[in-house]
Write a protein that binds this DNA or RNA. Sequence first.
RNA 1: GGUGGGAUUCCCGAGUGGCUAAAGGGGGCAGACUGUAAAUCUGCUGGCUCCGCCUUCGGUGGUUCGAAUCCACCUCCCACCA
Length: 363
Amino acid sequence: MSIYTLLGRSGEARRGRLSTRRGAIETPCFMPVGTRGTVKAMSPAELEELGAEIILGNTYHLFLRPGLDIIRAAGGLHPFSNWKRPILTDSGGFQVFSLAGLRKLEADGVRFASHIDGSRFFLGPVESMNIQRTLDSDIVMAFDECTPYPATWEEARKSLEITSRWERMSREQPLNDGQIRFGIVQGSTYADLRERSAREIVDIGFDGYAVGGVSVGESEPEMLAAVEAAVPFLPQEAPRYLMGVGTPRQIIESVARGIDMFDCVMPTRLGRHGTAFVGDGATLPVKAGRFAKDFTPIDPECGCYACRNFTRAYIRHLFNVGEILGVRLVTIHNLHYFLTLMRRIRTAIEVGSFEELRARFTV
RNA sequence: GGUGGGAUUCCCGAGUGGCUAAAGGGGGCAGACUGUAAAUCUGCUGGCUCCGCCUUCGGUGGUUCGAAUCCACCUCCCACCA
């Protein structure tokens, strides 16, 4: 039985449903990032109210803290965090990239020096799968090497080969009942390598496929070209996930190229830093001094809790004095923005107005 | 009334003859952020016709080649003594 049901399409854009043991997810979808077992500043109840159907967790971070003993004793990440809907856990492959200065690549994985206290530990496909089993997430990501940017063709090829090897090892590890596993395509900005990686990963065989190694510093055209190069080699009947992307326009452009799932820290991080998403992908620096006496909501058109109840002037004040409510309100607004964007995209594909919607996102 | 201490750029506060438009902090302003080492980080913060010039360190007047820094007087503030 397939985990992915195609419900409709508009060109390459797909409207679908992803089935997990903790419920279905309507796609295209956006997954808020909860690296350390919490979507920063949000309670599970708030996330549910915002309409988040699935969130992310992270293998590397949760392995370090609180550690497997505590997660195991709690009965997994779900009971530990009281989030009842699906969780996708990243494998730690992104930390191979983001913590490049603190690790050493080896044949069967990566030797890390903890970014917290410098203590050494080893994380490879076997370890990552083991940790994700303990976390008991619903979607497990294969362990990959997120290729840095820029990379020469030769470097990208070598990195891709490491990833294929590690993903094959990942695939050999057992999972808990009902857990599903996604493979990750690498290949940097090289179309031929993207194709090769996609073929190899599909050949290994996963429940879903991710395009990784994007949003690592490359230009938007390069990112979209990487998607275009990989997607044709991914099976129609499996969900496709573009990792770490992105801006509203990048999301909609990727949907137009056949992507079903997204995650990005942008709404939550920018929320904490006082920048709100408005309109058709524009940003508004709410904490800016020019809003000191602006008694309108962040976005008058928005229906989120923050916009229904608070003004720019007040939220700016909260940031100005360092009150956590400011962080929370803009996070709520931004997550509402991204989740509503996905809802609009899904509806547009259903009713045949996707290209119309897409054309509006020019920022 | 007396004695002592003090007044520095938006604020606090260093600086006691040239290396000082003046440390540091705060505040303010701007920018960055894409599978989160991030409620973080970076830059700017006297003016201008801006590779140079002008104005500024309570006020006025001196000393000196040169003063925020030394001297005199004045104004205000603080502490203690009457």
